[in-house]
Design a protein around this nucleic acid. Structure first.
Lengths: 134, 134
DNA sequence: TTTTTACATGCAATAATTAGCATATATTAA
DNA sequence: TTAATATATGCTAATTATTGCATGTAAAAA
């Protein structure tokens, strides 16, 4: 029961719900800097939220050099049911805006890997504009 | 989104989960004194937990004289999905024990109404023994 | 009209959570 | 080695949640 309580607690926070939403809707792994740009919150806030979600066993992660890719932990039936529930009921405007920003950010991946890192928002906007031109 | 967060927060507490479990498993309305005996916790603790669950719109209630009967709020699709999820994953020993005590307590209902109220546990045990003899 | 009974709530102490900043770690690049 | 970069974490103050007790409320019974 403790683990289930921990999962509910992990989900009872706006930032953490927004993060889970991005994993559910994008259906792929994401790194910390991509989440920063999609959510527009500081790096430490993303990191802390991810740690709580990981401790609740809702996420797993893989390191790749200095990058860390997180993803939904679907190895547990309980989680799969939870994610299905969430997919149906996370439809707030905030979530849709996050998804839009994430999709833009993902355009910058190369070979399906994040290559951008943490950069000022103005630089990010430029990069994305250039990318869309091509 | 705020309401969903409030629901997750309401569910991230052992007492409140145990209460929700009893409503899900028993499939009926229950009054405060019945929950006290099933959970073996003080009246004020049951009342406070119920208030939080009601504010999160997970429960509704009806007054009947001085008795108050609470029940699952199934008027929202979101809740129905949540309850279905919970039904599948609330199977801890604690929950089963609560269910057993509740079933005993419910034997004392008359015309499907609670008639016992708040009494010392020893008196409750006696009443239940007598009831089972009949 | 007083008492009893079922339930709710206000308050105070304590514990847990959050938010922001600075800094630490670990890997890669120079 | 040193510097740079992606990510994690320690610390603090502020806020929020929990617990237990005492008391309040409202309906029914006496």
């Amino acid at each position: 029961m403790d683990k289930l309580i921990e999962k509910f607690k992990a989900l009872s926070d706006e930032t953490r719900l927004r993060i889970i939403n991005l994993f559910i809707k994008s259906g792929q792994n994401l790194c910390v800097c991509e989440l920063m740009d999609a959510l527009r919150i500081p790096q430490y806030a993303v990191s802390k939220a991810l740690t709580i979600l990981k401790n609740a066993e809702l996420l797993t992660y893989e390191k790749e050099g200095t990058w860390v890719y997180y993803q939904l932990n679907k190895s547990v039936q309980e989680n799969k049911s939870l994610f299905t529930f969430l997919r149906n009921f996370l439809n707030d405007k905030t979530f849709l805006e996050d998804e839009d920003r994430l999709n833009q950010r993902l355009l910058l991946r190369e070979d399906n890997r994040c290559v951008v890192g943490i950069i000022p928002e103005e630089d990010l906007v430029k990069l994305i504009k250039e990318r869309i031109k091509k």
